[in-house]
């Protein structure tokens, strides 16, 4: 396997600033992502965690510019990969970024695989298109990649079709294809959600290992706090289209500061803890068409005070983290 030379530039590999992504409903546009700031540092695994409607997958689609045409638009902000704004690229240049520089792994591997093509041919095709290898070289490299993602008996199985593979093995193939171009960034949206837990553990440790060998940065999008704890270096918690708390993984779990993060942890049934600790969060995530005027979490928040319901709290630095909460940020200032 060839090592990628370290990138000459410094600073974050991916920087999202003020991203606002809107969806159309009737004649109106409603924001699903509302002024998102997020950075991915080199060699880092950033987990973006949130429930349905948090905007985490819309963020991924915005980065890749794969939003449904006509129904969605990026209304503001920029997304810089190595200092270059992806939103200003032509569709052709963007096509090369996808796959070449940002590898993608989604929840359902079958959507990324061609059911009528042999596994080996699909990986080869990626290598020929994106890396310009000839047939023989592509074949050798495809086998090396499939072995690297630990596909058992890769030399034989590369001649099989996707339907002959289990879900876990398909996801390995998709990962091999994502690696084919030695991307700087691997963007994984719920990569293990459709898999059984023992297979999930295998795929997560594979991703972690590959990230290290390839010197990649990884953004993993998930709803599962257990997955976050297993693989992330840093975590951004999203709620209703915004980051509400961002922190190194250990600090976040040891001392969640945002009331939503705290509540999410208490609502997660743990296999290592007894019942009685489980606390549901009342109410539900607001609809993008009926966003509360102040803090989006205020209607469900036990700590809410008058300003929370009228003014949107800013994302402010708080020690090693960023926090979007009037009450908790003021507690710190008062203390």
């Amino acid at each position: 396997m060839t090592q990628v030379p370290p990138s000459p530039s410094h600073g974050p590999v991916l920087a999202i600033r003020g991203l606002r992504t809107e969806f159309r409903s009737g004649r109106n546009w409603y924001p699903a992502v509302r002024g998102l700031d997020l950075t991915l540092n080199r060699n880092e695994t950033l987990a973006v965690v949130g429930e349905s409607g948090s905007g985490k997958s819309v963020t991924a689609l915005s980065i890749l510019r794969l939003l449904p045409e006509g129904g969605a638009r990026i209304a503001a902000g920029n997304i810089e990969l190595d200092g270059k704004d992806l939103l200003t690229l032509s569709e052709r240049d963007m096509d090369r970024v996808r796959g070449d520089r940002i590898g993608m792994v989604f929840q359902e591997p079958m959507t990324a695989l061609n059911p009528t093509m042999r596994i080996g041919d699909q990986v080869e095709e990626a290598l020929r298109i994106h890396r310009g290898l000839d047939r023989a070289a592509a074949r050798r490299e495809a086998l090396a990649l499939l072995e690297e993602v630990k596909l058992p008996s890769a030399a034989q199985r590369m001649h099989e079709y996707p339907h002959q593979f289990s879900g876990g093995m398909r996801q390995r193939v998709v990962i091999a294809m994502a690696l084919a171009c030695r991307p700087q960034v691997l963007l994984a949206d719920e990569p293990t959600t459709a898999l059984d837990v023992t297979i999930q553990a295998q795929v997560l440790s594979l991703l972690d290992e590959l990230k290290r060998t390839y010197g990649m940065s990884m953004m993993i999008i998930t709803h599962n706090l257990g997955v976050v704890a297993l693989i992330a270096d840093r975590v951004a918690v999203m709620y209703a289209g915004q980051v509400v708390e961002e922190a190194p993984v250990r600090s976040l779990f040891a001392m969640p500061r945002h009331p939503y993060t705290e509540a999410l942890l208490r609502a997660t049934p743990r296999v290592d803890e007894d019942a009685g600790t489980l606390a549901p969060i009342p109410g539900q995530v607001p609809s993008i068409r009926a966003m509360p005027p102040g803090c989006a979490y205020a209607p469900r928040c036990p700590l809410r005070r008058p300003p929370c319901e009228t003014e949107v709290p800013p994302l402010q630095a708080d020690g090693d983290r960023l926090l979007r909460c009037w009450v908790r940020n003021n507690e710190r200032i008062a203390a």
């Binding site: 999930q200 976050v228 779990f253 290592d272």
Partner: peptide, 8 residues
């Protein structure tokens, strides 16, 4: 062991 728990 494979069942993830929210604890790094």
């Amino acid at each position: 062991a494979a069942s993830p728990v929210p604890d790094p």
